[in-house]
Design a protein around this nucleic acid. Sequence first.
DNA 1: GCCGTTTTCGGCCCGACTGTTTTCAGTCG
Length: 575
Amino acid sequence: MAVSNDEVAAALTELAELTSISGGDAFKARAYEKAARAVAGHQVEVRTLDAAQLRQIPGVGKAIADKIVEFCHSGTFPALEMQRTAIPAGLRQLIDIPTLGPKKALVLYQELGITSVDELVDAVQAGRLDELRGFGPKTAENIMHGVEILRHGAGRVHLDVALSAAEQIVEVIGAVPGCTRCAYAGSLRRFRETIGDVDVLAAADDPKPLMRALKAMPDVADVIASGPTKTSIRTTAGLQVDLRVVPPESWGAAMQYFTGSKAHNVGVRTIAVRAGLKLSEYGLFDAGTDELIASRTEEELYERLGLQWVPPPMREDRGEIAAAQEGTVPGLVTESDIRGDLHTHTDLTDGIASLPEMVQAAAERGYAYFAITDHAPNLYMQQMSTDKMLEQRQQVRELNRAYKRLRLLHGTELNIDPDGGVDWADDILAGFDVCVASVHSHFNQPADAMTRRLIKACENPYIHVIGHPSTRILGRRGPVAADWDAVFRAAARTGTAFEINASPNRLDLNDEHIIAARAAGVKFAVNTDAHAVPHLDNLRYGVGTAQRGWLTPDDVINTWPLRRLQAFLRDVSRG
DNA sequence: GCCGTTTTCGGCCCGACTGTTTTCAGTCG
């Protein structure tokens, strides 16, 4: 079985977590974590490397290289198995609860025998934590709140996890003889921010070989149900995948039906009914005679209903049906419209790849411009300094000469402090081509203070883009509280763009905020916030989110030609 | 467990906040 870098990284992360929960050497745990990050961000598939080559990866030494080799060969290694035996599986889940770390988890296990989130909730409710040293009422409250956040996302996975599973399955099923079409549908096709289960649709006259192929896939943990038209499996990663096979002539109707959303389909069906028609997953029919009117393509269905075709990310019953009736569905921004990334990191701060590696990757993507925006001094852990920044700027300028079609921009990701100030004085800020500014601390400010803070950042003439504006981490941290309408008005007034952070853990701004911001007149930047070369591919999730917010290329500054972008950056600098 | 022209041993991104304490451990970015 072909082990991916992500799977290797997951094993090392698990070892790191189990090591810290069991009270093992904290530096050892950190070494595993660091290696996991390096493997996840490595450009080459590590399964193709031998131990000597693996040791070339920063943070991977002899011991970890051997573990990786063993893992690629057998799917595990002795140190991991030993920790798994020592630490109950459910205990590891506890540290996914925000504010609960390895030390507290270990106390809960040793003192109260707690080995799962459910047991922890019971213990909190029974007041059993009160007797523990270091666990006061506020801790109990934070735990309960953290569990709520955790459970809110339970059973759902992030877009990247769902998409890679779906693409693998589509490739396998699509290659089965007799399969004429295969694609994923459902919330994944709509690019919702988290995915409950993956819907894969295939067209074939005989579904049996397709069902067999799915059940035979190596990642299948169990088959939940299997019939002539539908098979449901659960992957080893715990993700449910439904495969539905339809006759080729029903393809369009089935795609439309299974893409959803339910609310969108209800709206479309209502239009059908009013026209004396009925729409199902089998096609569009005359309600009186049951005569088939259309079913082969989605485009055909929408057209016969007097509608423009609606891009899947817009199918959320947020006015897209009326737009389709009026012929005003916007020409959405696509991945190929993006001419450059305006928020990326290198190993000068917390990135994995070096400046030349990141730039080379940007050139290979065919970008017209690319901004390097490493962290600024006030994020202390990154140990950035003015000297290091200036030295990097020099390197950027020199590197720029080597690339004819790629324009490098030297930028930074500033920290918006609680009062809305940022790291450097104006004369330093003026030296950057582009400044992203983000909130990295004091997430719990009251809404009025946070609103003032963000507005002040917008009003800073040197700040071009507000990075990951709500600061949420999916399944881990909610958005900050703010009067977003007031913030968006300020951004529109000052010409400050808002980021759509494409990391599948963030997707920030989200669709609803994008719609509100656009209505206020805000411009956007779809950025990856890449900390490694593979992260540049996350762009698609940001573009999908932008599409859910109905954005066109004109709304997104990093689709613009360099000159227009530079004019925008100059304008905002003038304030 | 990793790493190295101030080190092959002894360091290891550093500071702030929170909640618990009554001087600090744990968590986070």
